[in-house]
Design a protein around this nucleic acid. Structure first.
Lengths: 193, 193, 193, 193
DNA sequence: AATGAATGAGGGTTCATTCAT
DNA sequence: GATGAATGAACCCTCATTCAT
């Protein structure tokens, strides 16, 4: 709606930086406004309230995140390759964006339940992408037809998410992207028919 | 130390209930005191501050949680059976304790980084149990010797945690424990040599 | 800086009244805000914290107090006349402002050491004025050249301060200003060469 | 009354130390009890409340302080010598007892008005001693008969008190006792007939 | 007499949100 | 649209005092 207004994006970017630098609880609206170079009140012309800023941050950033992954896997031949690409892209994007990794893995999880519900809503399209890969793999005869789809999706997402969170909390001391082939091998072994 | 004082446990139990009912941010110290039937100030005879209550809740409850699992798997014959029992116990204990499930899966994650670090410390013994099972499985020739241990541990814990969290957020509408065999089958297939 | 903002002065005046009426420890920030006709939070737009209000009260009031005395003595012919005027002005200003007398002589002294240090800093210019009068008197040959300046200053200030404090604690039952000539005579007799 | 009970004095001494070390506001009843080696509740067998401890501290210590001065001046020949001794003793006693100096000059002044009134009551005998010296001096023809007694007493006490307070706040960096002859000379010059 | 666990009232400060300009 | 001064609700913790033992 207001998303082509330039200040909307300015505020979103400011929010990511402020949250990454100050943590969830250290991110006052006034700090975000200052970083964005607008008055406190201006924030409320573009966002309903503080929670709306945070949801929007997640929407925008996860939207791009998911789009990148979607785009990257379309060209891949089969489910296995798609899954590898998905894993690589998942790791690469977060490894490439330190602020975003901190915000999505640590800071935004400190939010209340209402916000968490909305975050889950934003995450839904990503889970759908995973579901589609699984379904395709089964269709291709690569994965067992009897797989419990939800369970598999939770395993894949749960594993990747746990890996990234551990990596962020270990202060990104090791190479996350390098682990993509290993985890890919482990996962497709679990799935293969 | 203070742990055999009856009020210590009274307050811990009250805290679990209050947090489950009111959420992390809605749990004022005075509310916990009231539920525990003590004066506000009494809380501070047993806990350093509010955060200390929360860490202690997690320590006590996760301590029991882990002990139960440890005890249950010692009698099991091999790594596969131990893993199944671990999964079952993990699900059963949280399914049996609605309040605890909400507190551990949702509310305590809303805490700040300092508290999260302490929570990780408490979780460490559980991760050690998982590691031991993996190592035993490799020793028994059940699992590939070449497995990246950390990665496997993250897959197992990440999967279980994601499953429980989803189940709690779906308001525990389906049978979590019934999924133990499925997820066990999936995981050992990934690990088997 | 913020001193020409009207609310700054409104709060200062409210603080003097509230402290005089309720005592130092009975002067909650909310009480000062109410008397000033502003919200509690507004106080913190103009003052760093509660102590800052108190220091500022003293700064503003003592600043005026000292300026009045300075202005009054410039026109006086010699050190003796200056000293008389200083004593008269000291007494007159406090006698004329019941609230201020209570606040400076009784309430602000109940503050902690940090605040007391800052109060001393504010008082410094007054002590400098006294020093200048002494020095001038010596220059004019009125006072002994061998006087220990610090000691004389402490005698003058200590005497006046003790007199005012006694008068305030005796509920201002007698005429303070009327004692100026007597104390002046006593002091210059001690100093005269 | 309870003053010959050994714990009474133990608590008084503990209170002086605790106040000197921790400041007025850092001196909790429990801290005094701990230093005295008694239980918190025991304090209330000997003192009505916290204020009563502080008043008693002042009573006991000032009582001794005044007795020492009284004893020392009886043997002196005339008012001038008595005044010198009084000044010397005043300075010596506080210089010799670092804790007491801090407590009487700085910490106890941070108390509320009620306590300050009681402190004044305790101080009364000292002021009476000063009055007696003045009166004797006038009787001996040393001091002017026309002196305003209260004013002179306020000058003497105000000067000494201001000197000691300044010296304590300057962290006792210089020799207070050495100034006794100077201040004595200044004061008797003001008084002499 | 002595203990010390328990009590519970009280207040400075933050910060999301509003609204007059 | 943009501003930013003003608002005021909300809460953790301390500590003097009590009283059952």
């Amino acid at each position: 709606m207001k998303k082509n207004k330039p200040k909307y994006n300015t505020i979103i970017e400011a929010a990511v930086e402020v949250i990454a630098e100050n943590g969830y609880h250290g991110s006052q609206v006034s700090k975000i406004a200052k970083k964005a170079g607008v008055a406190d009140g201006t924030i409320y012309l573009y966002f309903k309230n503080k929670e709306d800023i945070l949801v929007s941050v997640f929407e925008e950033k996860m939207g791009q995140f998911i789009e990148e992954i979607k785009a990257a896997i379309t060209s891949k031949a089969n489910a296995n390759e798609k899954l590898l690409t998905l894993i690589e892209m998942h790791f690469e994007q977060l490894a490439a964006n330190h602020h975003l990794a901190i915000v999505t893995q640590l800071e935004l999880r400190q939010s209340n339940l209402g916000l968490r519900m909305q975050i889950n809503r934003v995450l839904k399209p990503y889970l759908d992408v995973i579901d589609a890969v699984i379904e395709q793999g089964i269709g291709e005869g690569l994965y067992e037809a009897s797989l419990n789809r939800r369970l598999v999706r939770q395993m894949i997402f749960g594993t990747l998410d746990e890996m990234v969170t551990n990596w962020v909390m270990k202060e990104e001391k090791y190479d996350l992207v390098a682990q993509a082939p290993d985890v890919h091998r482990l996962l497709i072994k679990a799935l293969k028919s």
